[in-house]
Simulated assay, not measured.
Amino acid sequence: MTKFTNDQKLETITRYQNSSESIGEIAKSIGTYCSVVSNWIKQFEYHGLSAFEKSYTTYTTQFKMDVRTLSGNSKEEQLQLNLSIISHILFMGV
């Protein structure tokens, strides 16, 4: 299935709000299902522009590797990694 940008989603919602086209017609014209367009509309009505903002945190590859190896290290190394994780979370504001 095609991925849509936030701008494309907002354009689709605006198109629905400002025209007499049905959700089905719009969905077909952009190559997706009615339920997808309907969900975008509901999300937008409930959350506004923030509906399509990413809600997850991106971590660096090194940080992920440090976390994965945490369980196989000595207590001293685990403590050092724990401190690294805590400082990363504080720095990133997570």
Rank of each mutant, 00 (worst) to 15 (best):
M1C: 14
M1V: 13
T2G: 13
F4Q: 03
F4T: 02
F4D: 00
T5M: 05
T5Q: 05
T5Y: 06
T5P: 04
N6F: 13
Q8N: 14
Q8E: 15
Q8S: 12
K9E: 03
L10Q: 13
L10W: 11
L10V: 13
T12H: 04
T12N: 06
T12V: 09
T12Q: 05
I13N: 00
T14Q: 10
T14S: 09
T14E: 12
T14Y: 08
Y16H: 01
Y16K: 00
Y16A: 00
Y16N: 01
Q17H: 10
Q17S: 10
Q17Y: 11
Q17P: 06
S19H: 11
S19V: 09
S19N: 13
S20N: 15
S20R: 13
E21C: 07
E21M: 09
S22I: 13
S22W: 10
I23C: 03
G24V: 09
E25D: 08
I26C: 00
S29A: 02
S29V: 03
S29M: 01
S29E: 01
S29C: 01
I30Y: 02
Y33T: 15
C34E: 14
S35H: 12
S35Q: 12
S35Y: 13
S35T: 11
V36Q: 04
V37W: 02
V37D: 00
V37F: 01
V37S: 02
S38V: 05
N39L: 12
N39T: 12
N39Q: 14
W40C: 01
W40A: 00
K42M: 01
K42N: 05
Q43R: 03
F44H: 00
F44L: 01
F44W: 05
Y46K: 12
L49H: 15
L49K: 13
L49C: 14
S50F: 07
F52D: 02
E53V: 08
K54E: 12
Y56C: 09
Y56Q: 10
T57E: 13
T58I: 11
T58G: 09
T60E: 06
T60Y: 03
T61N: 15
T61A: 14
Q62Y: 15
F63S: 06
K64Q: 11
M65S: 15
D66R: 03
V67Y: 04
V67F: 05
V67D: 05
T69L: 14
L70M: 09
G72K: 13
G72A: 14
G72Q: 15
K75T: 07
E76S: 09
E77L: 07
E77I: 06
E77R: 05
L79N: 08
Q80F: 03
L81S: 02
N82L: 13
N82W: 13
L83Y: 12
S84Y: 08
S84C: 11
I85D: 04
I86V: 11
I86S: 09
H88V: 02
H88A: 03
H88M: 04
H88D: 06
I89P: 00
I89M: 05
F91V: 07
M92D: 08
G93Q: 01
G93I: 00
V94A: 08
V94S: 06
V94N: 07
